[in-house]
Design a protein around this nucleic acid. Structure first.
Length: 507
RNA sequence: GGCCCGUUCGUCUAAGGGCUAGGACACCACCCUUUCACGGUGGUGAUACGGGUUCGAAUCCCGUACGGGCUACCA
């Protein structure tokens, strides 16, 4: 009997979607799709104090850009709605109470101040962060330590309280991680985690177990930072009596920055993006640039993320999403963290730009140019420009630097590159070139080059010495594709105009 | 401090007991190119350390070191 594969991702709408998050989605998605299963997106807004308006929509936007569209989500709907945890409050409460009545959890009435005090009192050098656990719980104010009638009174009076799991003493917990193999813990080292907060919202620990169960999740992938709390989740599955339905776990390695874990500071310090798309914090107004806006193609973004911690064992590096789905295997995911290398990320983008036909890039390039106030009316010309310059573009934004002069007459001209070697003979050459081009009816790169070289020979000047001045006249500087290709694309009229301009400047 | 996870060129990684440890990014040189790139050829460069097990260890085991994560009414 094969259960249909269902994997889930549970982002919290607290800000930008970073590389680690996208990669987790990607691996979830690849794993599910490979087996014809479902990719479920659940919104983890269990902490309303951290909820950022707009962040949920932003997550959908990022996933859509990446091409990783969920089968079920608050936005897309599905058979297990609602998928937003704030809309499932009642469910969590009743399950938490079930746990209390079974004796696996208890009510705790300690105030934040009392918890703070506990931590200060029991803090020692050997134990810098004392935990609310089996050794201390009887010294705190909860339904285990307090007389039953007092507990009842407190509950009747609606005194603020939480539900905590009662972690057993000295009980080994082990599970098999799909990436790491068997992982063992001792329950002594984990504290009595809060399951239901005083505001009635669940913590991640409770929500993840209940929702994975109710939504029939078969595989749960998440970041390595969750490994230490895995025993809490394993125990909850057991306490609810759902052990046979527990998903298989995979804890993905972290993505690291140049010095330790990848952070927004790294992004600022080293000048590379860490979010999929631009994220503006609605509170501070602070903008963090995304890969999309930096000029990445989603195919390249997905490609390099997939390879950051996984490979198919061959030497292939360029994969489409379809190929990734076909070749992905969780067994080949690394257990060690991977440092993010922006240079390599750019290389992937370059590869994708090169492999795409000009027509396929047209839409994106047009947008990029529009941002630099170059509006395209002639789409055919744009396509030709793209075909001509794309091999030298790493980011989509490079199309501006490589191609703006096809659409705009250069204002500033790098005259210094020409003037020192400028003379009467060269002036005469360009004047006669102008006349010859004027007269020609054939306007094609090879033909122009041929005429140019013949004329140079007649006048006794090396063509090489004349190419740079021509280039400067046409584009304004020492850059761009082969100069006669530029002339062809520019058209006869514009080429002649720019040669005239150049002659006026060089004298 | 405690617990957990990890460790192959600078970076991402291949090699799951057996050739001179392979590839990619980056870097360097040469070629191509009378611009800048692309491209081509070649080069520098790694099994953290110490013990075992074995005819044989990057690979299995133990210890050490280093790195990372967790240790919240955050996820």
């Amino acid at each position: 009997m094969n259960k249909k594969v269902r994997v889930r991702f549970a982002p919290s709408p607290t800000g930008g979607l970073h590389l680690g998050g996208v990669r987790t989605v990607l691996y979830n998605y690849l794993f599910a799709k490979k087996q014809g299963g479902d990719f479920v997106l659940r919104i983890e807004d269990t902490d309303q104090s951290r909820y950022v308006p707009g962040a949920e929509q932003y997550i959908y936007d990022c996933l859509e850009w990446c091409g990783l569209v969920p089968d079920e989500s608050p936005k897309h709907g599905g058979p297990f709605a609602p998928y937003r945890q704030s809309e499932r409050k009642e469910i969590y409460r009743s399950y938490a109470e079930q746990l209390v009545s079974k004796g696996y959890a208890y009510y705790a009435f300690d105030t934040p101040e009392e918890l703070e005090q506990m931590r200060n009192v029991y803090k020692t050098e050997a134990n810098p962060s004392p935990q609310y656990d089996h050794s201390l719980r009887m010294k705190m104010r909860n339904s285990l330590s307090l007389p039953a009638e007092e507990v009842k009174k407190l509950l009747d009076e609606n005194v603020r309280h939480v539900v905590r799991i009662k972690m057993p003493e000295n009980e080994p917990v082990s599970f098999v991680d799909m990436i790491r193999g068997e992982v063992n813990f001792d329950t002594n080292i984990v504290d009595d985690k809060v399951l239901l907060k005083a505001d009635g919202m669940p913590t991640y620990h409770l929500a993840v177990v209940i929702d994975d169960y109710l939504m029939k999740i078969t595989h749960a992938f998440r970041g390595e930072e969750w490994l230490p709390s895995a025993p809490v989740h394993i125990l909850l599955w057991k306490y609810f009596g759902w052990e046979n339905d527990m998903p298989q776990w995979a804890h993905l390695p972290l993505i690291l920055g140049p010095q330790g874990k990848l952070s927004k500071r790294d992004a600022a310090k080293y000048g590379f993006p860490i979010f999929a798309m631009n994220w503006t914090d609605p509170q501070s107004g602070e903008l963090t640039e995304g890969f999309k806006e930096r000029g990445f193609l989603p195919q390249a973004f997905i490609n390099f993320l997939a390879l950051l911690g996984w490979n198919d064992g061959s030497e292939q590096e360029i994969f489409s999403l379809e190929e990734l789905i076909e070749k992905f295997s969780i067994e080949r995911v690394h257990s060690g963290g991977a440092k993010f290398d922006y240079e390599k990320a750019k290389w992937f983008n370059h590869q994708w730009i090169k492999r795409f036909e000009a027509g396929r890039l047209k839409f994106e390039v047009k947008k990029t140019l529009a941002q630099k106030r170059i509006d395209i009316s002639d789409e055919q010309k744009l396509e030709k420009v793209i075909a001509l310059v794309k091999d030298r573009c790493t980011l989509l934004t490079d199309f501006y630097d490589q191609g703006w002069f096809f659409f705009k007459t250069p204002g500033e001209i790098d005259a210094e590159a020409v003037k020192p070697k400028w003379n009467e003979a060269k002036k005469r050459f360009f004047e006669s070139l102008k006349e010859e081009l004027q007269a020609t009816s054939q306007w094609e790169s090879a033909f122009i080059e041929d005429g140019f070289k013949k004329l140079a020979m007649i006048q006794g000047i090396k063509p090489g010495e004349l190419q740079l001045p021509l280039r400067i006249m046409l584009v304004g500087g020492k850059f761009g594709p082969p100069v006669f290709d530029i002339a062809e694309l520019l058209g006869k009229e514009e080429t002649l105009r720019r040669i005239e301009n150049g002659l006026a400047i060089f004298g």
